[in-house]
Design a protein around this nucleic acid. Structure first.
Length: 311
DNA sequence: TGCAGTGTTGCTTC
DNA sequence: CGAAGCAACACTGC
């Protein structure tokens, strides 16, 4: 479920925690797909991946669209996508025996020490799929119940080309209202919710934030973008920036599996007006609507049929 | 108990 | 060309 605010929170956290550290070990129990499409199902292929990153230094951890980008020394990069249930957990790995080689570590919660105060009883420890350890004893683990997350290996110099498929970053200064409007109106067909979630137009918005943005802007998710009045287009733009920033400030949305790298929850799930509020009264002042759920472009849209107008 | 629901991306099909 | 549908996966809730 990680969308822009969750991925941003994770990348910022990991950048502060890992910058300058040297990778000393790596382990995975499933496919770590390299750019050469090596499906790492067996340990032999995994060693191809781990041999490329062992001994490398973390230069930076950043975000592009919903991807976390680890820039390593020697022009090597790791690109991670959390998909549905993936999230990184950072900690000090405390085992009596030193962990050597690709032996699956057992992350019992007694052995897991969050770097900051957090829930030691992290229920996701049993879904640890991937671990990197560093020379100072820090470990970075990927927890992913559904195994959709992808970790790919790239030549840093090829990244720019790889990322061309993504559209504008919604929070960048250069993404002005004028640029946004031009992008939105590129599609004359389709529905506004689908367009907000199209990563090639605007990068980083998924189901939660598209529902919340459209609720806040009083626009029905099935509206045709070319029919939406200028004023409402502006409301969507403003709501988009405000809501994404607010969620970043709150550490993201932990309604489902997402946790910050220290194991603690974000807080944005307490601020939902539409998402997963089916059947509940609309919170907007003087609005008598009941939040409705409907499939829009194959995704479940949550909206208030009274104050969100269909254009 | 069984099966729909959960959401992201990418592939296939129409 | 675009859209629609589905697979990848595993658990939750009705």
């Amino acid at each position: 479920m990680p969308e822009l605010p969750e991925v941003h929170t994770t990348a910022t956290f990991l950048d502060r925690a890992l910058r300058g550290k040297i990778i000393t070990n790596a382990w995975s129990d499933y496919h770590v797909k390299s750019v050469q499409k090596i499906g790492i199902k067996d340990s032999k292929l995994f060693s191809v991946f781990s041999n490329k990153i062992l001994g490398k230094k973390i230069l930076s951890v950043t975000r592009r669209a919903k991807n976390i980008l680890f820039r390593l020394s020697d022009n090597i990069s790791i690109v991670a996508h959390m998909k549905m249930t993936g999230h990184f957990l950072l900690g000090a790995y405390r085992r009596k025996k030193e962990w050597v080689g690709p032996i699956p570590p057992t992350f019992e919660h007694e052995e897991w020490i969050p770097t900051e105060r957090g829930d030691l009883q992290n229920p996701f420890n049993r879904f640890i799929r991937f671990v990197i350890s560093f020379s100072d004893g820090t470990t970075l683990a990927l927890s992913d119940l559904r195994r959709f997350a992808r970790i790919e290996f790239f030549d840093t110099l090829r990244l720019e080309n790889e990322f061309k498929k993504f559209g504008h970053e919604p929070l960048e200064k250069s993404f002005t209202f004028t640029v946004y409007k031009k992008q939105i109106l590129k599609r004359t067909t389709g529905k506004i919710k689908t367009i907000l979630m199209d990563q090639s137009i605007i990068a980083g918005i998924g189901n939660i934030y598209s529902d919340e943005i459209l609720y806040s802007a009083d626009v029905h998710p099935e509206s045709n973008p070319s029919r939406i009045p200028h004023a409402e287009l502006k409301k969507i733009y403003t709501a988009m920036r405000l809501i994404l920033k607010k969620s970043i400030r709150l550490g993201g949305d932990s309604m489902s599996d997402y946790r910050k790298p220290d194991g603690t929850r974000g807080e944005f799930q307490n601020c939902h007006n539409a998402y997963r509020r089916t059947g509940k009264p609309c919170k907007k002042r003087n609005c008598s609507g009941i939040i409705t759920r409907k499939k829009v472009g194959g995704r479940s849209a949550h909206f208030c049929p009274i104050h969100q107008k269909l254009y």
